Amino acid sequence: MIIEKVFRIEGMTCAACVRAVERGIRKIDGIDEVSVNLATEKMIVKYDEDKLSQGKIIDTIVKLGYKAVLKDELKEVIIPIQGMT
């Protein structure tokens, strides 16, 4: 079954980084579609979960020299700031 996951990719600095990540992920058997956005540091991947695990995707990103975190694992922190006018 094809599923979609969103990852945060850290360490990309230019369009060449984006191309390297997309190219590296597309080489994995089971990948249906991949899209990387440099400005938001997000990668959206559609893949066959019967052929591929998200761990393999993260391992590939690490081997390419970047850090990947599944969006579900990210935490949001809200810090209220007072006294600004």
Rank of each mutant, 00 (worst) to 15 (best):
M1L: 05
I3E: 12
K5T: 05
K5S: 12
V6H: 05
F7W: 06
F7S: 04
F7Y: 12
R8D: 04
I9E: 01
M12F: 01
C14V: 04
A15F: 10
A16G: 12
C17H: 03
C17K: 07
C17R: 07
V18H: 01
V18Q: 01
E22N: 05
I25W: 02
I25R: 02
I25L: 02
R26I: 04
I28C: 03
I31W: 04
E33D: 15
V34W: 12
V34M: 03
S35C: 11
V36K: 00
V36R: 01
N37Y: 11
L38V: 09
L38S: 04
A39P: 04
T40M: 10
E41H: 14
K42Y: 09
M43I: 09
M43E: 08
K46H: 11
Y47G: 05
Y47F: 15
D48H: 08
E49V: 08
E49K: 15
L52G: 12
G55I: 11
G55P: 01
I57Y: 01
I58A: 08
D59N: 13
D59L: 06
V62P: 03
V62C: 06
L64V: 05
G65Y: 00
G65T: 02
Y66H: 07
Y66M: 00
A68H: 02
A68W: 04
V69P: 03
L70R: 07
L70M: 04
K71M: 14
K71R: 13
D72P: 00
D72F: 07
E73F: 06
K75R: 14
K75N: 10
E76Q: 13
I79L: 10
P80T: 10
P80M: 06
I81C: 08
I81A: 09
Q82T: 15
Q82P: 08
G83R: 01
M84C: 10
T85E: 12
T85S: 11
